[in-house]
Amino acid sequence: MNYRSETQELIMKKDTMDTPVETNETKKPKKDQEYKIITRNLDVFYGEFQALKNINMKILPYSVTALIGPSGCGKSTYLRVFNRMNDYIDDFRIEGDVIVDRKNIYTEKIEIEQLRKDVGMVFQKPNPFPKTIFENVAYGLRIQGVKDKHFINEKVESSLKQVTLWDEVKDNLKKNALALSGGQQQRLCIARTLAVEPEVILMDEPTSALDPISTGKIEELLFDLKNEYTIVIVTHNMQQAARVSDHTAFFYMGDLIEEGKTTQIFTKPSNKRTENYITGRFG
């Protein structure tokens, strides 16, 4: 299959580029403290329906972790567990542990607002506020009560620079954000998330509504961002997962089928279903 060979080529290239890759056997088990996010025996229900079944997974800091799987497999639900965005769903119920930065975010007393500042999120469809470009980026600071104009100005500029949007909009900061193109809007949404200085960034199919050029820009961005942030990305695009992620987890019908280094998942998956999915035989 053409598709497969393309993906594998990508992986090979990446393999040679990367610093020596440790194989699974030689890798020493890491301590839990070294992980950014840990889920243990996680079950998620919507009413009677079980959306996630006994998920055990650990996510390393300063890396990109891709969640893949067919629609309805639970990957978006899983992503939204980390910043508790599922809480608004009426019959949402969760069991098990979700530990972000050594804190159990569902049982310990945490401020949900603080959690969401630490764990930012970028959505599938660009959703800028119907305000100016400047106010979109400043929003997160303003709701925290930041009044220092100088600080806000600087933060807006540096955030927009981080997403390489500054040069395109610096003369139009007062323009309504909805006038930007889709790709620019999505980068603005990322800048808005960066402005509140998160440690983890969750991305829910961030490029599925964008053209290939905008997609490329955002993927490039991910390479820079992972030096400073922990990134978890849901994607339907196998090549994207192969290109941008260090680790990949494959979900199917609410189960975590397989997870591991992206190179390993895409070249020698240990589960037949994983192989079928990434080679495009179903899903």
Binding site: F129, P130, G140
Partner: peptide
């Protein structure tokens, strides 16, 4: 008011009241 607007506000750490006052009511 589209829920994506509320999601964006919540995801940045806004409280319910901030989201209603700053996003939902103006829209």
């Amino acid at each position: 008011v589209p829920s994506s607007l509320k999601d964006a506000s919540f995801a940045l750490g806004a409280t319910k009241w901030q989201t209603i006052y700053l996003q939902v009511l103006p829209a």
